[in-house]
Structures are given as structure tokens and as C-alpha cells.
């Protein structure tokens, strides 16, 4: 059942995700800088930052429990698995059947709970504040993401991500209005989940607004490096899911080596365009007040529900 080619494709996918994820973050940052008329850091800047952090020693608060030190690894593991499940290069992945779209959402939730618990562990004002805000975003974003994935599952009659990609890319080209609505919702959710501008700004430490940064305030050294890496993996995983749902062409249908190798440049090209669009969205939008965030996410949630309703009405 599990072919050697599949295993190799799976490994290639994980390694590629680990390498491409920081590059994607660097690419988005570059474009953000360019669009804002600043001089951009190099593409490899995230790797330099990671290396620097790994070299430094970790400083841990005196009151930290083992949970605090375990959390970065757990979050990193969750995100790596998420990247492994999402079909980026091939659809015949050995890990694919282990987790479908619903389990993928559960995986993100697991990582979120861990990072929130770790933030509460030290017992500082900022940590608990960050945890509360993160969970607030999570409880609205999670069902919205699930509904987006459901819209795609209803079309392909499967919750397996690989089957969804095969169904969407394999059949005759067709316009699915429900998927279009779901796409809007998905974009909104991804912005919130990846701490992007209308919802959160990862480049400030302002107590009124920060969410993601408040969570990881107490981390340093290798722990921080792992969390940062996990954050870029999350962005990568979301991009992969978005590409798989809305631009599914170019992913190898089987485990043929040539097709997989061909899929790499296609993936990189799609990610490059996606990253540019993300930077554009971040540039032309202003950050919302925190009170507006639930509204924003509720809109995304309801849009995803409308996508499901439209699917029921139109059958597409």
C-alpha cells in the first residue's frame, strides 16, 4: 500500500516545507518593504535570524514548568505534520490518510492550545493577555476554516486533502461559486491565523495590540527559534492549503518522480505570487482595533457558511 516513491515524496515534502517556509516569510517581508518604499532585507534573513537564535543560550523564567519548555517542540511538531499532510507536491502521500481536513484543523488547534498554555505558564500579565486574545481569535477562526474545508469537501465528496486536490484539479475545469466565496473566507482566516496585518502586526510590541508577540514574550534562544520557525511553517501550511483548494493545478497526481520534480517549480512560482499578494494585502490595509477582530472573523465564518449554503442551492 505504501510505496517507496510515496515515502520519498513525503520526505521531500517535509524537507522542502522546512526550507521553503522561512524563505516564504522572507519573501513576504521583502515585498512588504518594497511596497512600503523601504530597503528590503535579504531573502535569507529569516535563516540568519534562526541561526542566531539557535546559537544563543535559552533564558527561561524561574517559575517555568516543564510544559513551558516542551511547548516549542510540540508546536513545531504539529506544524511540521500539518505541512506534511497538506499536498504540496504529490497527492500520494503515506501520511495523507493519517489525518484528513478535520484532523488538520484539530492539529492547528492543538498547537494553539499549547502555545496559549505555555504563555500562561509563566504567569505574567502579558502572557495571559496574549493567551486570551489568541484563544479569542482561535475560537472564531477554527470553525471558519473548517467550514471552508467543508465547502471543498462537499464538492469533491471527500475530506481527504489529497482527494480534494485530485477532484478539483483532475476533472474538467469548472467554476465553483461556493469555492469562490469560501476563498474569500479562507483569505480572511489565514490573515488572522498567521498574525498578519489587519488582525495582528508581528513587528510591534505594543501592549494594546499585540497578540502573537505577547504569547512568545518569555521565549528566547532555541525555543524562540523553534516557535518562529513553526510560525513560518504555519504560514507555509496555510498557503499550501489555499493553493490546494483554489489553485490545485500542477500537483503531481501519483508518485511519479518526474511529475514530483516538475511540481517543485510550479509550487515555488505559486508561493511567490501568493506571497506578493499577501504583502499587498498587508500594505493596503490598516490594522484593526482589537474589538473589531471578532467581527472580522465572524464575517469570515458566516461567509464560509454561505459558501456551504450556495453549494446546497446550486450543487456546485
Amino acid at each position: 500500500m505504501v510505496s517507496l516513491g510515496g515515502v520519498l515524496a513525503q520526505l521531500l515534502e517535509i524537507v522542502l516545507a522546512l526550507l521553503l517556509a522561512p524563505l516564504l516569510s522572507g519573501w513576504v517581508n521583502q515585498w512588504r518593504a518594497w511596497l512600503q518604499g523601504r530597503q528590503a532585507p535579504g531573502l535569507l534573513q529569516p535563516f540568519r535570524v534562526l541561526h542566531k537564535l539557535f546559537v544563543k543560550e535559552s533564558v527561561v523564567a524561574e517559575s517555568a514548568s516543564p510544559l513551558f519548555r516542551l511547548a516549542p517542540y510540540a508546536i513545531f511538531g504539529c506544524m511540521a505534520l500539518a505541512c506534511a499532510i497538506a499536498p504540496t507536491l504529490a497527492t500520494d502521500l503515506p501520511l495523507g490518510p493519517a489525518a484528513d481536513a478535520i484532523a488538520l484543523v484539530g492539529l492547528f488547534a492543538l498547537a494553539r492550545v499549547f502555545i496559549s498554555l505555555a504563555a500562561m505558564d509563566i504567569g505574567t500579565a502579558f502572557g495571559t493577555l496574549g493567551a486570551r486574545r489568541e484563544m479569542m481569535i482561535g475560537f472564531l477562526a477554527e470553525p471558519a476554516l473548517l467550514m471552508v474545508l467543508f465547502a471543498a469537501s462537499l464538492i469533491s465528496r471527500s475530506t481527504s486533502l489529497a482527494r480534494i486536490v485530485e477532484a478539483l484539479a483532475g476533472q474538467d475545469f469548472a467554476i465553483h461559486p461556493s469555492l469562490a466565496v469560501a476563498g474569500v473566507a479562507f483569505t480572511m482566516v489565514s490573515l488572522a491565523e498567521n498574525a498578519r496585518v489587519p488582525v495582528d502586526n508581528p513587528s510591534t510590541h505594543l501592549e494594546l495590540t499585540m497578540i502573537h508577540e505577547a504569547l512568545i514574550l518569555e521565549y528566547s534562544g532555541r525555543h524562540l527559534a523553534l516557535i518562529e520557525w513553526a510560525a513560518s511553517l504555519k504560514l507555509f501550511a496555510y498557503s499550501s492549503i489555499g493553493l490546494a483548494l483554489f489553485v490545485p493545478w500542477g500537483i503531481a497526481a501519483g508518485a511519479a518522480p518526474l511529475a514530483i520534480l516538475l511540481a517543485i517549480p510550479v509550487l515555488v512560482a505559486k508561493l511567490a505570487v501568493g506571497g506578493m499578494l499577501l504583502a499587498l494585502i498587508e500594505t493596503i490595509n490598516a490594522k484593526m482595533r482589537l474589538f473589531r477582530v471578532p467581527e472580522f472573523l465572524a464575517t469570515a465564518f458566516l461567509l464560509a457558511v454561505i459558501a456551504l449554503l450556495v453549494h446546497v442551492l446550486l450543487g456546485a
Binding site: H176, P177, V181
Partner: peptide, 28 residues
């Protein structure tokens, strides 16, 4: 690829766009 079917689906897409815009107006 069936152009006729595709055009039909495009009408659906326009319809859904109308609906989403109506929702956007409510929330704006």
C-alpha cells in the same frame, strides 16, 4: 471542456458575487 457549461457556471459565480456584495454592504 464545455464552454457552454462554463458560461453557465460563470452566471452562478456572478450571482454569488452579488450575494457576497450584499452581505459586504450590510457589514460596511
Amino acid at each position: 471542456m464545455n464552454a457552454h457549461a462554463l458560461l453557465g457556471q460563470s452566471i452562478n459565480l456572478c450571482a454569488v458575487t452579488l450575494l457576497v456584495l450584499a452581505f459586504a454592504m450590510i457589514a460596511q
